[in-house]
Structures are given as structure tokens and as C-alpha cells.
Amino acid sequence: MSSIYRSVFDIIGPIMVGPSSSHTAGAVAIGRAARVIFQDVPTKVTVHYYESFAKTHRGHGTDFAIAAGIMGFAPDDKRVPKAPQLAKAAGIDIRYVEEEGPSPIHHPNTAILEMENGSHHTTVGGCSVGGGAIEIRSVKAQNVELTPTGPLPMVLYLDRDKNLHQIQALKEQLMGGSQLKERKKKATTGDLYEFDTLKNLSPEKIAELEKKYKGIVFLK
């Protein structure tokens, strides 16, 4: 069993603005995750849609949903349908491209977001697997490309110092007695790690780790 869905609230919920949990609420979640990974306000975002997303994004409100996610709105925020105008006013230029052919991350509901501002460029590939749940299947940051395990919760960390000692300490903190899956990509700019914690971490623990590990990303 893949166990993409881990909480009863993945099934009963989310509370959201219609019309589609996969194409609207899930798209908000992809936009939010991308913004969290980018760790800054992008000035330009290019959204590449594939398969069902490419065919039906206009009818499902996927465009305003992605924009809402980039703005950091929750799926039940009443501002969701107005997000493109609000993003434009905030200086974020968002373009949407309908791509032909199959999704490079192998899911019919795929959006790949290229985000940039003056200082950096990040690409995040997300798919909406149903009921508002998402997976993040590709991340490219600081020219390092990683293929994460997919399901959330997920922890991403770019280790610029290549300090294995520090990574071992982080892993022990994340595990807390339970399982931990890990993916790693080495590069000259740093080693990019992804950890699948299987269970959600407490807000206190996240705050503690964020202080200790600069730039660490928690997706849930």
C-alpha cells in the first residue's frame, strides 16, 4: 500500500472554496508548497500544466487556485477566486502554459511551477492526487535537482556546508523513534536532502529545527 493518505482529515476535508478538490484545493496546496520551498516572494512565476490540468484548468479555477497558493492563502480563504488580481497587485507576474504530452512527474493532475526573483530561481513539480491531497515529486533549487518520495509531510534541507555530522543529528531529531525515509542529491552548491517523516511533527519541534537549520523547509 502506498499510503498517500495518512489522516482521516485527508478524506473528510479540507474545508475549501469550490469547485474541485483536486483541481482547486489541491492546486492551492501546490502553490503554497512551492512558495514555502522558494522561501521568498517571487516576481515571476510560470505554471506548466500537464494532462487533466492542461485540459480543464480554466473550468476548475486551477489558475486562481495556484495564484492563491503562491499568495499563501488557505483553500477556504474567500479571497481564493480573486487571487490572480491580488497577486498582480503584489507585483507577482504569473503565466500559465498548457503543455502537450504526458506529465514528466507521471500524474494526470500535474503543475510544474518555475519561480524566480532577482536573486534566485526554483522549480517545483507537484501533483494533486485527489481530495485536496498533493505530492511534491520534483524540486530544483540552487541548480540542484532532487526527486522526493512524494507524499507529505516532507522535510527539505540544503546542506551548503556538507556537514554529515549535522545531518546525522537532524535525522535523529526528525525520527523521534519512528520511521524516516531519505533522499539525497549531491552538488557543488550543497547537498539537497528530502526526508519523509511519515507522521506530522509538532509545531514546537518545527520551530526548534527551523532555528537550528537555516533554510530548512517543512511541508505538510
Binding site: 478524506i11 474545508i15 472554496v17
Partner: peptide, 9 residues
């Protein structure tokens, strides 16, 4: 605003 159970549709 609705609650997806399991989806919005």
C-alpha cells in the same frame, strides 16, 4: 465554501 468528502465534486 464546502467540505470535501472525499472530494469537492
Amino acid at each position: 465554501v464546502i467540505c470535501a468528502t472525499p472530494t469537492a465534486g
